[in-house]
Nucleic acid binder design. Structure first.
Lengths: 361, 361
DNA sequence: GCGCTTTCTGAAAGCGTTTTCGGGAACCAG
DNA sequence: CTGGTTCCCGAAAACGCTTTCAGAAAGCGC
């Protein structure tokens, strides 16, 4: 080891007690082979005499060698990380999907870099950029699709060079303005099915709690619900659909607003379970019993709604599954056209909905 | 550009349409400066003539240059990622802490690599190893502390070279066998305070639903609860504390078992909210009204317990805050001794607990 | 024993940055 | 003008790995 070689290390580990990092070079030296052979022995890319192979492995174990992923990535231009950008990890809906992603990633020995925009759009592009810098093998966007052309264009511009360079992109629960692989719940059909189920229970007077209309998830569910009602000849006056933030408190506020408008529906549909949770609390506060006075339904079937009293009627989505699908899609053999995996929702009737009660309010 | 230079690129981007990656070299060339100057202009590490600086920045923007994080990490031996290993991201308790970590990381422009062991110990060490390979600036362990010497020793052996090489380690909600920075809820004190509050409500007959005893979080809470009862001269017979899995269903099963043993406590304490959720369902199934027939209390104050009916009495922990603290701790000026940040729990009485009812069962 | 494959191995180039080092230009005082 | 600073900038080394390329060793038929 020449004198020159030490200078850099000294800089990096200024403390006197700095242990010399063990590199492939160290291992190779200890095993009495060249770094090239050591690399081959460790990675099994090429045949290497069994004896040497053993020596290398032993030396590596002995020295506690851990390859430098950065050097590997740099040299081989490959990498076992995927990036995930999530609308809001503290929302159970996205958390469940993310959890599915992580499980699938673990099975494939991938490391996931998870970022949450916490509902701040600007961060999304910033994160894409960071993940590009990391040369993530794939980038997954979970939720947060927004109908905003300028915005989408900017995002697309950021993504385009990435895919052109071989990166994979997939989105989950986000509308399809981006021409990438997509896992999409059948929001419209699900909401329609739910509406039909509620109609079958005899409901005719509905109230709807919805989120920001530029979120296409919201828009689709609203559309599906509306269409199904229309098909049955049931009106849904505009003042009966009230918009709130896409959160528990948003649902709470929206429900209050609905009642404040004097509406006395026999059934309330919140476009997400999270909003339904808030709505349930709001209805209670106003002295309404669910489902006796008013029925309540949500969408998503996040785990917690099963624990509510009454348990919430909703449209069930295989959240974890969706996350797994996204990874599978992104890592599958590359195809020219973007694929769409539609996942159906299943109406699950629970105690929060009952037969329509003629007398309410 | 010599002919030689193209060969590598061709291999990496085999498709004929492969665009030439834009590197620092490209930018420098376009700006008519050397890569060294381009690097300096971009990073602002050294003064560089304003005019050149402008040219470089313009060229970078024009070409859509994104630095290769791997090359940067390799060259500078620094890195802006932190690794987080979480006991189970799909558990609301850990998810909330992780969410705090992510928020804090975002503020510091750090990328987080999140891994979940999904309660499988073996994965923990494997992940530490992967994060070491990534040269993460810090590694955070969330939960999953287990009282198992052999195990802890193995983990310690994996961590030691990492910290020696300058890596930071912090743990959250995990007992202190590892000599690293720690964020620790005051489990014992919290449980004791809760016990006192319950005693004050007149309860004398308790049942306890607990998790795997080797999880020190569980053990500490149990101890605290027990001690407070003992201090008040109230007995807690062994058959009244039943052990279950550390999950919703574990709580459910444990509650059933408690009743099956013929116990008819006036108050049940589940060592975690998640278990309490299952317990609530179980009590209901057995026809017991909460809190009229039996009171129920948990620990953690995860968001969902506020939505239960009745809302759950529990010991509140600043979950997000704990995650933030962990990052702050890990990134703070290095100190020889490991620091411990103790976070107190606050008893929050909600509707699931009432005054002791002489007649129960 | 001689050429010709077939295996395996090592030297060295290369991945895309950062940082050291030294030199040239510009500046100031004398 | 000259000598000494001060500032900027470029050449080149270094980071730790993978992979190409070619050479050495071994096997084979003749």
């Amino acid at each position: 080891m020449s004198e020159r070689e030490r200078t850099r290390q000294d800089r990096l580990h200024p403390r006197g007690s700095a242990p010399p990092p063990v590199t492939l070079h160290t291992v190779a030296h200890a095993a009495g082979v060249s770094p090239a052979t050591a690399s081959r022995a460790l990675n099994g890319t090429t045949r290497v005499r069994e004896e040497l192979r053993g020596r290398v492995l032993a030396a590596a174990a002995e020295l506690g060698y851990i390859p430098n992923a950065h050097a590997q990535a740099l040299a081989s231009a490959s990498n076992n990380t995927v990036g995930v950008i999530c609308h809001d990890v503290s929302d159970p809906y996205f958390a469940a999907i993310a959890s599915g992603v992580m499980r699938a990633a673990a099975e494939r020995d991938l490391l996931v870099m998870l970022a949450s925009t916490f509902r701040d759009q600007a961060r999304e592009i910033a994160y894409v950029s960071m993940l590009r810098a990391q040369r993530a093998r794939a980038i997954l966007l979970i939720g947060s699709g927004i109908e905003d052309r300028a915005w989408e264009r900017a995002l697309e511009a950021e993504l385009a060079p990435y895919t052109r360079a071989g990166g994979r992109v997939a989105v989950v629960s986000r509308h399809r303005s981006l021409r990438v692989d997509t896992v999409l719940p059948e929001n419209r059909e699900g909401a329609a099915a739910l509406a039909r189920a509620l109609l079958a229970l005899g409901h005719r007077e509905f109230g709807v709690l919805t989120g920001p209309p530029e979120l296409t998830t919201v828009a689709d569910r609203l559309t599906g619900f509306r269409e199904a009602l229309a098909a049955a000849g049931v009106a849904l006056p505009e003042e009966r659909v009230v918009r709130g933030a896409f959160t528990r408190d948003g649902g709470h506020a929206a429900a209050l607003e609905l009642l404040a408008r004097g509406a006395r529906p026999t059934c309330v549909f919140a476009v997400t379970d999270v909003m339904a949770v808030g709505a349930l609390a709001a209805l209670r506060e106003r002295g309404l019993r669910v489902p006796d006075d008013v029925s309540l339904a949500g969408f998503d079937d996040i785990p917690l709604v099963r624990e509510l009293t009454p348990a919430l009627t909703t449209v069930g989505l295989p959240l974890r599954r969706m996350g797994e699908l996204a990874i599978a899609l992104a890592l599958r053999e590359r195809s020219a056209r973007s694929r769409v995996e539609r996942v159906p929702g299943e109406v699950v009737l629970r105690a929060s909905t009952g037969r329509a009660n003629s007398g309410c309010g």
